[in-house]
Amino acid sequence: DDMLNICFGNNFVYFYIGKGSSKLSLIAKSHQNSYMWLFGEQAQNAFCLEKNDPLLDIKILALFRLFDMSLSEVILGKITL
């Protein structure tokens, strides 16, 4: 975290996909601007997904498309974070 702050200031975003109860999720949860897809937990600024959802595959593909488009727009300078 310190190294990212030195390199980028506060101009970086964590992206996390996984269980909300995982220790790895704490890194993304500790930053307000994280991009999270959490399984089995609701959190602020996160998409909540249920692992038993029959449409889970479709939802993940739709979210990936949204992520890809938003990343492209940031890289091209059309939007700022």
Rank of each mutant, 00 (worst) to 15 (best):
N33Y: 04
E73K: 07
L56D: 03
D68I: 01
E73R: 04
D1N: 14
M3T: 15
L55F: 08
L38G: 07
P54Y: 12
N10D: 15
L61N: 13
M36K: 14
S70W: 06
I75F: 06
I6W: 11
S25V: 02
C48P: 10
L63A: 05
S21G: 14
L61E: 15
L71G: 03
F12R: 01
Y35S: 15
N45W: 04
S70G: 08
K59R: 14
D57C: 15
S34I: 01
D57P: 14
E73Y: 07
F47V: 12
V74G: 11
I75S: 01
F67W: 06
L24M: 10
K29L: 11
K23I: 15
T80L: 02
L4A: 07
Q42F: 09
L61A: 11
G18M: 07
N5S: 12
A46N: 05
T80H: 04
G18T: 05
E41A: 02
G40Q: 07
L4N: 03
M36Q: 13
K59F: 00
P54A: 13
I27L: 10
C7T: 12
K78E: 09
N52D: 15
Q42H: 14
L24R: 02
I27Q: 13
K29E: 11
S25H: 00
C7V: 12
S25P: 00
S72T: 09
L63F: 06
S70C: 09
K29Q: 13
K29C: 06
Q44M: 08
